[in-house]
Nucleic acid binder design. Structure first.
Lengths: 237, 237
DNA sequence: GAGTGGTCTAGACCACCCC
DNA sequence: GGGTGGTCTAGACCACTCG
């Protein structure tokens, strides 16, 4: 539908299947214009997508080249599974969820500020433990404004909040601000993550997520077993 | 010099000093064209920068709005201090460095692959502990091809490799692929990070960094004290 | 229907790399 | 000097939001 995305997907495919070899030069932008029948700016936008994904690099005066990336996950990551929740990430596993807590409360001042509400308003207060193929992965603490995300029920929590938000409520997720830390588990986390008798560090991800229209709809803290989870990013100047 | 960057900086300034208020609509793209005397595409590119930085959001059919961000660090982060090393990040502190190891070795197969070299080639092998205002922060394991980054000396390691690369060698850093994990310290790290008698998780950052021309020039693992370091990101759909 | 940002074009000139 | 990608323009049409 949208041309630059079509072109980007097409070039991406050629890189991943080896038609364009790592370290080698891509066809010139001018040539691609002819090949795809689009203007040069459209080609540039397509290539800029791939730069953002970490798949190619451009050298002014020289050309565009396939970046050598051995890390399969980085290539995956570029496939923009950005805002999928736990269920989607582990869709090839048997996903189980234990609901530890599910009620409605007033947010703290800090959380109210991050969600742009007052402490008089209400939020869902959800604590869940998540398992993949029987292995404990993460304990998630989630707060969401009940006004923005109505109709949450236990059945939804046992599956995927994200798919409920996107498919049922037809809301679109635009961005997320994340902070990562290394921490130690508390007693409850030790229990649900089954690390009573071992020393296991956790990777904590604090997140504020925003809808399409700029409204923050989720404040969450996820604490992952350090031996199960790693977090990858590509940053470009 | 470059117009869209000028415009982006200007708008950014107005957001940060409160001239454009959080949650409120920015002037229309058309109006900005007149105000800045540039074409609409240039305004769009400027605004897209600010979207990438997490400072504004755009709604097709409605307008462009200032994102409400309480977290000062996110706003800082957007000021693209992306590829500054330890010394720059802590420039307001008294930075000290202990060189634990500094020699030249053959890389392992894994590292050779990531740095696009063979196990026959040579890399610097550097281990350093870094301190800010006397507080231990991180132990860094760094490997760099001697061919790409010649002339590393102890005096450089005690200050900043990054400033040597950029200022002395005039090389430009283009991107970095990072993987974050939560881990426990080994004995040596416990010593240099002064956590002999406490349980302290570490935030590990594994990184492959690339130059302007696409060549990887650094493979490093940094293990930070969990109570000193957090890592922030903004991701946009 | 009026107004917003999103996409796209054809063409121009510039900064940079390499021969 | 010849060729690369980077920036920019003026203008067009489209998709979406909102009254």
């Amino acid at each position: 539908m949208i041309k630059y995305q079509e072109v980007a997907r097409n070039i991406r495919k050629k890189i991943l299947n080896g038609e364009y070899v790592a370290g080698k030069q891509l066809p010139l932008e001018k040539e691609m214009c002819v090949y795809y029948g689009v203007s040069r700016i459209t080609i540039k936008r397509a290539l800029d997508e791939l730069v953002k994904q970490g798949l190619v690099i451009k050298r002014r005066g020289s050309g565009t080249f396939v970046k050598s990336v051995e890390d399969e996950d980085i290539r995956e990551l570029s496939a923009l599974r950005q805002f999928t929740g736990f269920s989607e990430t582990y869709k090839n596993c048997k996903v189980e969820t234990t609901i530890i807590k599910f009620d409605i409360i007033h947010p703290s001042e800090e959380v109210a500020a991050k969600l742009q509400m007052t402490v008089e308003d209400f939020v869902y207060n959800i604590i869940r433990a998540r398992y993949a193929d029987g292995r404990p992965i993460v304990v998630e603490y989630t707060q969401m404004p009940i006004g923005l995300i109505p109709g949450i029920k236990r059945a939804i929590l046992e599956k995927s909040i994200y798919s409920y938000i996107q498919k049922e409520l037809q809301l679109k997720i635009q961005s997320a601000h994340r902070t990562l830390r290394a921490v130690m588990p508390n007693e409850m986390e030790q229990e649900y993550l089954r690390i009573k008798d071992t020393v296991m560090p956790l990777l904590e991800v604090e997140q504020v997520a925003f809808l399409d229209d700029g409204r923050p709809f989720e404040y969450s803290i996820s604490r992952h077993r350090g031996d199960e989870i790693e977090f990858k990013t590509v940053s470009i100047k």
